[in-house]
Design a protein around this nucleic acid. Structure first.
Lengths: 190, 190
DNA sequence: TGTACATCAGTGAACGCGCGTTCACTGATGTAC
DNA sequence: TGTACATCAGTGAACGCGCGTTCACTGATGTAC
């Protein structure tokens, strides 16, 4: 099974990274074993080390990929505050809360990334920077300095709110958290 | 080693719960093995099941204990917004960021709690409710309804901001996040 | 008060299992002739 | 164009290790006499 096309191995590698992203967001990084990750990608465990040096190496690549994807998504939002208002409503929706596997990597993994090796934290740092720029650009295009502080506030509110809603076993309380989060974030944007 | 005093076993149990809380916040729940947890409490692994039904059972008890402690701490803050301003400054301090083991359980464990069994989520739900009440009582004692929404916004901002700061490998960026978080939270309180 | 006994918190070895990682091997492919 | 070969992505068994959990046992204690 070798030498299909020139890009074959890179395609496989990318598939591993993307499926691993979903799995990590569902079960956590510590909670996802290499064998499971490879079987998610339609492969067996042994092939893993032909693609990555270690699980830590994969984690760093997954974090980078996840945030790159998020930056791209945010890049397609409407310009200005209207785009951020859409973001708030999508982000704090029950759909997003109930499907962490396809959702925001920060909401699913942020505290675990804080405990990771430097490679993953480095990847997260670069991605977070890009996200803040993307948000700040929509806040006050004329004044990027103060916008950056507001971007941090908006993003942390979104992440914290979704995490809180996911951790609550009481559905009504969890929904209340999302609704209040939307209201507060929209007020914050005005 | 039995029948010391009547409360001896409960004292031991509480010690296990408190040390496990620290360990969980440092290494994550998945990242902390039962043998390590027991050795943290000065015991051997076998004794664990004389105190808890399972690791999940311990986790639920730890989460309940951690949030109970946090509610107590918040209860000792100054009354009114002054107390919340103190909280913001303590919560978003480099000291808190750099010592997760003795810090806020939500900042260290919130996304992992979202993936836990129902027992832990139930315990978290009760605790979160009490925390929101404690914060809301200091916001606008006269209007607890709207205060609750603001309490959620404040707490999620604190949690998200500290998590973000912990996940960044760039110290300057991490400090900037804390400082902007303080500024934004204090503005929010006015 | 002194001694024999029942209690039970804690010990530590062992269970099967999945972890991250290694490695000898396979076999479909592109290339060379 | 047809065949032999080198390549190398992927296989699957195995490694030592730590996981959560079980269990026969220990021995310091409070209690009964």
């Amino acid at each position: 099974m070798a030498r299909y096309t020139k890009e074959h191995k890179q395609v496989t590698r990318q598939r591993i990274i993307e499926r691993a992203g979903q799995r990590f967001k569902l079960d956590g990084i510590d909670g996802s074993g290499v064998s499971t990750l490879m079987s998610d990608a339609g492969l067996t465990n042994g092939a893993f080390y032909a693609h990555f040096e270690s699980k830590d190496d994969l984690v760093a690549n997954v974090v980078a990929d996840q945030l790159r994807t998020q930056v791209e998504q945010y890049g397609t939002l409407q310009p200005g505050r209207a785009g951020l208002e859409d973001l708030v409503r999508e982000y704090l929706s029950p759909e997003h809360r109930d499907h962490p596997g396809t959702g925001c990597p920060s909401a699913a993994l942020l505290d675990e990334i804080g405990r990771c090796e430097d490679g993953a934290k480095q990847a997260y740092t670069d991605g977070a920077n890009a996200i803040m720029d993307e948000i700040a650009a929509r806040l006050t295009p004329g004044d990027p300095r103060s916008a950056r502080g507001k971007a941090i506030a908006l993003y942390t509110m979104l992440v914290g709110t979704l995490q809180l809603s996911r951790a609550l076993s009481d559905r009504k309380f969890a929904d209340e958290v999302l609704e209040q989060g939307i209201e507060n974030a929209l007020t914050f944007l005005r």
